[in-house]
Amino acid sequence: MLDDRARMEAAKKEKVEQILAEFQLQEEDLKKVMRRMQKEMDRGLRLETHEEASVKMLPTYVRSTPEGSEVGDFLSLDLGGTNFRVMLVKVGEGEEGQWSVKTKHQMYSIPEDAMTGTAEMLFDYISECISDFLDKHQMKHKKLPLGFTFSFPVRHEDIDKGILLNWTKGFKASGAEGNNVVGLLRDAIKRRGDFEMDVVAMVNDTVATMISCYYEDHQCEVGMIVGTGCNACYMEEMQNVELVEGDEGRMCVNTEWGAFGDSGELDEFLLEYDRLVDESSANPGQQLYEKLIGGKYMGELVRLVLLRLVDENLLFHGEASEQLRTRGAFETRFVSQVESDTGDRKQIYNILSTLGLRPSTTDCDIVRRACESVSTRAAHMCSAGLAGVINRMRESRSEDVMRITVGVDGSVYKLHPSFKERFHASVRRLTPSCEITFIESEEGSGRGAALVSAVACKKACMLGQ
């Protein structure tokens, strides 16, 4: 009897593995994704193909990295998701002549009506938060230079001027797309009239992360975010950046690689679950690469896999709870928690219980395998993109072996128990001629924006502006 049951459990697990095998990517698959990513990057950089390229390769006008001589107080704003952060950054000489960066910050959550109302409502709310922060720190009387981390696709015309191309991540505030974001912020500050600010720089969160990590390690020339969304930036040779005049030196390019796949480059790798996630998203047909990796989508992918296993009578005796059938019910943090389970399955059992399920031991094991399959594919897909960037940098610099540091931020990278190990191992397999160091950014977005502002202020002083 026991043997029969054991055989049935083994057969069930084997069927589960057959279904989950769809998520496995072979090294040849990853090399294919990497080569296609490089081709799209090239198209994004070139003037004649930029418009139709899915990977936009947006110039950021960040050319210099901090040298350690900029000092002063800077205000930093960070808008990239449902939370908005205001930070005071003091850049100065530390002990023994070292450079020191001290920060104080406060988080504000953005109400739904500000995210989806008008641009005026959104930026009025942001300036209200700045006003509140300055009151708390008794700094209303000071006109501070301000660095703005704005983590949406922007076409820069200068370091302090950028046109919002399109909202992502659930934002829909009308009247912002096609307009200068810094102008919208300046107008809102003017409307309030109770404080003055000098907006000197606007950067993407990947750029802010790279600059913040450069402060720790001067070989950091790539910034990457794996959180709600997924994106990367890197220092490109100016001669390859056709959208900006000049051939000397390097400029940081914001790849906006989340949109890779929007022209069909990933079609052969998309599964039924991916198509369902895409169809029910706020932007169907867009940001397809990001939807395979980002935390906004990972939990939902797992939920759809679990429903398939229920329908195949391989999980929960073929019956799903009402909660499990509800879109968004299986949160991405559950994926991390399930994979963090120590082996007694308590954590998995508790999560499934909150979803109205009474799982068996085998159910718990199957749910864990589903989570591992989805998150491992995410790590491997992400590795193909980064390997594409790094191999490109090595080739354009004609280096036999390139040493490089990548600064990384984002909740999936930082909080998932195995993502970074799987990701690092896969990147290294795909970049055999590179020695890569990964560092995690601390308060990256805010500190990085302030350091970019410090560079901009120093330049302005040198130019006598």
Results as ranks from 00 to 15, higher is better:
residue 284 P to I: 10
residue 266 L to G: 03
residue 355 L to I: 12
residue 425 A to N: 09
residue 163 I to W: 02
residue 345 R to C: 09
residue 429 R to C: 09
residue 85 R to Q: 03
residue 88 L to Y: 10
residue 77 L to K: 03
residue 324 L to Y: 05
residue 231 N to T: 02
residue 330 F to K: 09
residue 461 C to N: 06
residue 356 G to D: 04
residue 295 G to S: 01
residue 80 G to F: 03
residue 213 C to L: 08
residue 256 E to S: 03
residue 200 V to S: 05
residue 187 D to T: 02
residue 43 R to K: 05
residue 406 V to H: 03
residue 435 E to Q: 13
residue 426 S to V: 13
residue 432 P to Q: 09
residue 358 R to Y: 06
residue 10 A to R: 14
residue 332 T to I: 03
residue 159 I to Q: 03
residue 344 D to F: 06
residue 416 H to S: 07
residue 95 E to L: 10
residue 163 I to H: 04
residue 181 V to H: 00
residue 82 T to R: 02
residue 129 C to G: 09
residue 147 G to I: 02
residue 113 D to L: 10
residue 390 I to P: 06
residue 141 H to A: 03
residue 425 A to F: 06
residue 213 C to S: 08
residue 444 G to V: 10
residue 293 I to V: 07
residue 177 E to G: 03
residue 318 G to Q: 15
residue 85 R to W: 01
residue 290 E to T: 03
residue 284 P to M: 13
residue 301 L to N: 11
residue 308 R to H: 14
residue 29 D to M: 05
residue 433 S to Y: 15
residue 335 V to S: 12
residue 245 E to S: 13
residue 231 N to H: 10
residue 109 S to M: 04
residue 14 E to T: 08
residue 436 I to F: 07
residue 245 E to H: 06
residue 11 A to Q: 13
residue 427 V to P: 06
residue 102 K to G: 09
residue 8 M to C: 09
residue 143 K to V: 09
residue 422 R to D: 08
residue 386 L to H: 02
residue 195 F to V: 12
residue 399 E to W: 05
residue 283 N to M: 08
residue 401 V to R: 10
residue 142 K to G: 07
residue 464 G to S: 11
residue 138 Q to V: 12
residue 413 Y to C: 03
residue 104 K to Q: 13
residue 63 R to V: 11
residue 357 L to G: 11
residue 156 H to I: 05
residue 298 M to W: 03
residue 48 E to L: 07
residue 380 H to V: 12
residue 89 V to E: 02
residue 177 E to P: 05
residue 16 V to H: 13
residue 92 G to V: 06
residue 57 M to T: 07
residue 263 S to I: 08
residue 30 L to D: 12
residue 249 G to H: 14
residue 83 N to D: 04
residue 359 P to Y: 11
residue 339 E to I: 11
residue 443 E to F: 13
residue 28 E to H: 15
residue 460 A to L: 15
residue 257 W to V: 01
residue 361 T to M: 11
residue 310 V to E: 00
residue 53 A to I: 03
residue 161 K to F: 05
residue 114 A to K: 14
residue 309 L to I: 08
residue 188 A to P: 05
residue 149 T to V: 02
residue 238 M to V: 12
residue 373 S to M: 10
residue 291 K to P: 07
residue 227 G to T: 03
residue 241 V to E: 10
residue 416 H to D: 08
residue 435 E to T: 11
residue 423 F to Y: 07
residue 348 I to H: 10
residue 12 K to A: 10
residue 370 A to V: 12
residue 357 L to V: 05
residue 247 D to G: 10
residue 458 K to I: 11
residue 108 Y to C: 03
residue 118 T to F: 00
residue 413 Y to M: 07
residue 353 S to Q: 10
residue 293 I to P: 13
residue 197 M to D: 00
residue 321 S to P: 14
residue 176 A to P: 02
residue 70 E to L: 13
residue 240 N to P: 10
residue 302 V to S: 10
residue 322 E to V: 14
residue 357 L to S: 06
residue 325 R to L: 09
residue 127 S to G: 14
residue 319 E to V: 09
residue 330 F to W: 06
residue 213 C to T: 11
